[in-house]
Design a protein around this nucleic acid. Sequence first.
DNA 1: AATGAAAGCGGACCGCAGTCCGTTTTGATC
DNA 2: GATCAAAACGGACTGCGGTCCGCTTTCATT
Lengths: 196, 196
Amino acid sequence: MTNLLPMADEPAPERADAARNRQAILAAALELVRTRGVDCVTMDTVASVAGVGKGTLFRRFESREGLMAAVLDESEAEWQASVISGPPPLGPGAPPMERLLAFGHSRMRTNVTHGALIKAATGDSSARSRAAASFAVMHVRHLLRELRVTGDLVLLSIAILAPLDIMVIEQQQRDDIPLDRIEAGWDDLVRRVVGA
Amino acid sequence: MTNLLPMADEPAPERADAARNRQAILAAALELVRTRGVDCVTMDTVASVAGVGKGTLFRRFESREGLMAAVLDESEAEWQASVISGPPPLGPGAPPMERLLAFGHSRMRTNVTHGALIKAATGDSSARSRAAASFAVMHVRHLLRELRVTGDLVLLSIAILAPLDIMVIEQQQRDDIPLDRIEAGWDDLVRRVVGA
DNA sequence: AATGAAAGCGGACCGCAGTCCGTTTTGATC
DNA sequence: GATCAAAACGGACTGCGGTCCGCTTTCATT
């Protein structure tokens, strides 16, 4: 007998077939996104390539958005890792200001590169975007603190991060503003906020 | 005989029935949005209430997004008017810094109030959001110039406006940050950028 | 190994945005 | 007022995201 009365609300284990299917779906989605491009990947296609029913997709990943978020996390996780423990200046070791600028540049380029996927994974109040935003705010706030910035650091972090949003970046690109100029503008903003 | 050879590429006149239908559609959409809320308004419903075919809706307004943009413009236009020629501090007459802060607060509150409609009207590269953003950037840039701010004023304007975006605001509200604190944080940002 | 209930499965089905194309309306010209 | 091409119309149709529910699989227990 193991654990008759549930001790805590454990996150519910996953049945063998469920785990197998989640892997198959994720692999299929990843492959399809890579070969056809995000916008041409339908849920029916993913289901049939993965060899499961459509219902299974939605039970595992909630929505198309959720599935795309899972695909995106594959690369997002390693980006976060390189921020936390990669080589400087993005990772630890460089002075805070250099790290902050490197962080912004890296985030901006990543957003541009994975733009389509990020947009597909980021709808209203998606769990994924909350987590991603939370990580970024945490990191920027930490760097601002090291830079001895005073004030509401959470709000300042959000303000600093807002112009890096893909939608904002793409709007500027549509107005023929080159990426380098956007980057320079952001650097300027950061310096003004930090007060350097 | 009037104008046999077209002198310039005039924006093409509109046939009587076309104009009539556009009005009917817009009226129906406005009414439905008001009574049912944006998210419950389908294109089929608008079409049947307006007494036209579905095809007509899409020919006139391109997409659901476009229709919602048209509905939104009803109120957006008068907001822009109050910025350009309304009473201070939002309108002309107050010192630039006061106007800038008033502008931000007003924009923020408006975004929150019309959040659902704005989101429905604002998709990837919508013509509407380009125009709206353009107006805001123009205005902020103008105020920054009056404040003797130096640098890439367009980029700084975009950076100042980015945190006012509905998606950004709503993210913060989900994290239980009250609107007043968001507002204060934005004021702080502006003062740092302006250098006051 | 037998059992039974909970978890998972899958595909028919639904609602909605957007397209297509044969028919109708408009208005400039004669 | 008759003519006619261009413009507009409308609703059947398509494709996709998402739901529903009767059937199957899993696995803890005996």
